[in-house]
């Protein structure tokens, strides 16, 4: 502890990092790819450490950390959308390394449905307004509840529900169109 009674990085925050960095990485990597995800996770925890006084210690830290990560990723939103568009347009994901791409391609030859869905999801994500995209990915990928997303994004729960409903409606319609 430091003189103010705060956890020092060495005796507290690295434990938080060890516990949650991988979870945050998954969320970030799916949005902006491995390289930017590494930086985003590092930046998220540095901001979190700086803002540790604003964190209610009796609350689970993940919504707070996801909120910071989402804000950090906001700086890369043009690149994020560009990646979705490229995947939707070409069927090749620019975020996947060549080896993974090959593996992905091999698998998608066997599972055309999954490949098609992936392109469809990318196309919808590229078109979603920022807030709906944030809410959808925090719900589906980060698996936060409505209340946790509301806390992460500092939004009313009703707004989260509404944004998620809109995003899912668009996504479902897109997937259903594909199946027809």
């Amino acid at each position: 502890m430091d003189p103010e009674g705060n956890l020092l990085i060495a005796d507290g925050f690295t434990a938080l990092y060890d516990e949650h960095a991988r979870t945050l990485y998954r969320y970030c990597a799916r949005r902006v790819g491995p390289d930017l995800a590494e930086d985003a996770v590092a930046q998220t925890f540095l901001v979190a450490y700086e803002r540790r006084h604003s964190y209610a210690q009796d609350q689970p830290p993940l919504p707070w950390l996801f909120g910071i990560a989402t804000n950090v990723l906001n700086r890369h939103r043009r690149d994020e959308v560009r990646g979705y568009r490229a995947l939707a347009r070409t069927g090749t994901d620019p975020l996947l390394a060549p080896a993974a791409q090959e593996s992905h391609a091999t698998r998608t030859e066997e599972r055309t449905d999954a490949h098609r869905r992936s392109r469809k999801v990318a196309r919808v994500l590229a078109k979603l307004p920022r807030r709906q995209r944030d809410v959808l990915l925090l719900f589906a990928v980060a698996e936060l509840s409505y209340a946790e997303i509301a806390e992460a994004l500092d939004l009313p729960v009703g707004t989260v529900q509404s944004a998620l409903h809109r995003a899912r409606t668009k996504l479902r319609k897109s997937l259903e169109d594909e199946d027809r």
């Binding site: 690295t14 991988r22 990485y25 590494e38 869905r117």
Partner: peptide, 21 residues
């Protein structure tokens, strides 16, 4: 469909999280 989307990226490369820590 969203959960399966880019699931290949879930696993960080070796040492990927070292920098942040």
């Amino acid at each position: 469909a969203v959960r399966e989307f880019r699931a290949e990226l879930d696993e960080p490369r070796d040492g990927a999280l070292v920098k942040g820590r």
